Amino acid sequence: MTELHQAAAAGNFDQVEEILKQNKCNPNQRDIDWSNKTPLHWAAAKGHTDTVRILIEHGARPCLRTEHGWTPAHYAAEFGQLAVLRVLHSFNAPLDKEDCCGDKPVRIADIYGHQDCVRFLKKVEAEREMAGKKEISADDTDEEWAEHGKENEENGISKLNYQM
């Protein structure tokens, strides 16, 4: 876990800002010890909206996924972080990506009983469909995760195997 991961998880905005200004850490660095989470995943899960905002403004990609396919939106949905979901939406982050089990953030929010998040995510999805766009973000694909999925398919590993 990098210094930036730790500061983002703790919600230490000033430290995150200082690290980013000094280019001390890559805002998209994946932590292999924590399922490939980026600092943005941590900030989203903990509900640190200002930290989410500054990370994205400094190049953090909200489409990056953990080893199980979770985006920052999945973590925000799991922990009922509606304000984070709103910030992610304001940056046109993908809010409807499926994880390796086929679950979107709206499903995760529903599982954990965060009905305010469910309503918001359904509203966003409906707005995007009405606009005729399934994906609004130009940066909505995690190439590394997609490549990992291709390798698993070629080796006969299905989505169901990830559930174990």
Rank of each mutant, 00 (worst) to 15 (best):
H41E: 09
W70K: 13
E57A: 09
R61Y: 08
R61D: 15
E67I: 15
K21T: 09
A44K: 03
I19H: 01
V52E: 06
P27E: 07
T49L: 07
A43G: 02
C25T: 14
E17N: 11
E18A: 13
E57T: 04
N26T: 09
T66C: 02
N26Q: 08
D14I: 04
T49G: 06
R30Q: 13
H41I: 13
P27N: 06
Q15C: 06
P39T: 08
N12E: 10
R61E: 10
A45R: 10
A43K: 01
K21V: 03
D14G: 07
R61M: 10
E67K: 11
C63M: 07
K21F: 04
P62G: 06
R30E: 08
N28A: 12
L40V: 10
D50S: 13
I19F: 02
H41M: 11
D31P: 00
W70C: 13
D14M: 07
L40Y: 10
P62A: 10
T38L: 06
W42P: 00
T66G: 01
W42A: 10
A44Y: 07
D31K: 01
I56S: 03
T38K: 02
H68V: 14
A44H: 05
L40A: 08
A44D: 10
I19P: 00
Q29C: 09
N23K: 15
Q29N: 04
E67C: 04
Q29K: 08
T49D: 13
A43C: 04
A60M: 12
R30N: 03
P62I: 11
H58S: 14
Q29H: 07
R65C: 14
K37D: 12
P39Q: 05
V16N: 00
P62D: 05
I56K: 04
N28G: 07
W34H: 12
D50C: 03
R53H: 11
L55R: 03
N28S: 11
L40R: 06
C63T: 05
A45L: 11
Q22Y: 02
G47R: 06
T38Y: 07
A45K: 06
Q15R: 14
E17R: 09
E67F: 01
Q29V: 12
Q29Y: 13
A45F: 04
W70I: 11
